[in-house]
């Protein structure tokens, strides 16, 4: 049994333009202590997957089928029970997770007392310990969020996410707003702190470089579907789905120079209102056949492609 299992998860939004399928039969698993990356273009469904796990799909959106299980137990019906305690979250904007009117210490202690048996002095000591772990002096427990820089704030958010001793942290573009040099520090820290506690992380990003450096496994999403999943090494070195191949090939690398023409996937990802029949990628796919235009490929051997599923 895996730590987290998502099975055939579908999310739909009802609007005046009809029913939009934001997630279409997504299945994946997360093991204890693992760093799973979720990559894809905006609107591909990577954040939607994170939100579904946390029970944060607001009407008119709805989970229409499938199940999400944490340690074998379904969490679709009552996500409030696990949100914050068993699964924490880190967002792009650290200020959205911090209360500007309370000190960092107060917020940490509040979370610790809410989700763990530690009280009073024990909670205070734990808060100081967390601060040390994220490389911030424990004296700064009495500081307010606005007294920190962007990178420091995101460190504090990591401490806050760890305070409830969760099994899983979902980090949605945690470093997109940060400078490159700070990004590396924050992600290294996240990796370090989570490894120390055996916490699993789902890292949602659009940056292939971040995926390559900081994840163990990657799920690639396209138009609401999970189209390929595998170890980071396999996905980057030998991607099988034509979309994943295109994605990797179009990422600028250090081997390029001014005279290089980057590989480009023709066209755009279709909006949810106009997903083609069959494989959602078929109009842009260099190897598409008739079958690809008619039948939706399912994830077989970790690839959702009629032509690439054989190992």
């Amino acid at each position: 049994m895996s730590l987290l299992e998502i099975e055939d998860l579908s999310v739909e939004f009802t609007s005046r333009r009809g029913v939009l399928r934001a997630l279409d039969n997504v299945s994946l698993t997360l093991e204890a202590g693992e760093f799973l990356g979720m990559v894809g273009e905006s609107g591909a469904g990577k954040s939607m997957t994170g939100n579904a796990i946390l029970g944060l799909i607001d009407p008119p959106g709805k989970i229409v089928s499938g199940d999400i299980r944490l340690q074998g137990e379904s969490i679709v019906k009552n996500p409030e029970r696990i949100r914050g305690s068993h699964i924490s979250m880190i967002f792009q904007d650290p200020l959205s997770s911090l209360n500007p009117l309370k000190t960092i210490g107060a917020q940490l202690i509040e979370t610790i007392e809410l989700h763990t048996p530690r009280r009073g002095t024990a909670a205070r000591e734990r808060a100081a310990e967390l601060m040390t772990q994220i490389g911030v002096d424990a004296d700064r427990l009495s500081a307010y969020p606005h007294q920190f820089s962007g990178g420091m704030r995101q460190r504090v958010v990591i401490a806050l996410a760890m305070a409830s001793e969760p099994e899983i942290i979902i980090a949605d573009e945690p470093t997109t707003a940060l400078d490159v040099s700070v990004q590396a520090q924050v992600l290294d820290l996240l990796r370090e702190v989570c490894s120390a506690h055996g916490t699993s992380v789902i890292l949602i990003t659009h940056d292939m470089g971040v995926i390559g450096h900081w994840t163990d496994r990657v799920g690639v999403m396209y138009a609401g579907r999970l189209i390929e999943i595998g170890t980071t090494n396999d996905i980057i070195r030998s991607p099988r789905h034509p979309y994943t191949q295109g994605l990797i090939a179009s990422t600028p690398t250090m081997d390029a120079n001014v005279d290089t023409t980057l590989y480009q996937i023709p066209g755009n990802m279709p909006p949810l209102t106009a997903i083609p029949d069959g494989c959602a990628f078929n109009p842009r796919c260099p190897i598409a056949e008739d079958k690809c235009r008619e039948v939706i490929p399912h994830l077989i051997n970790d690839v959702a492609c009629h032509l690439r599923s054989e190992t």
């Binding site: 490159v180 040099s181 990004q183 590396a184 520090q185 940056d207 292939m208 470089g209 971040v210 390559g212 450096h213 900081w214 980057i236 070195r237 990797i248 990422t251 600028p252 690398t253 250090m254 081997d255």
Partner: peptide, 22 residues
């Protein structure tokens, strides 16, 4: 890229999460 002179440039190059396919 071959020989950055300033320490800051070196740090930037080191921190950049660039995909290496090779």
């Amino acid at each position: 890229f071959a020989s950055p002179q300033h320490q800051y440039t070196k740090d930037l190059l080191a921190a950049a999460p660039v995909l290496s396919v090779a």
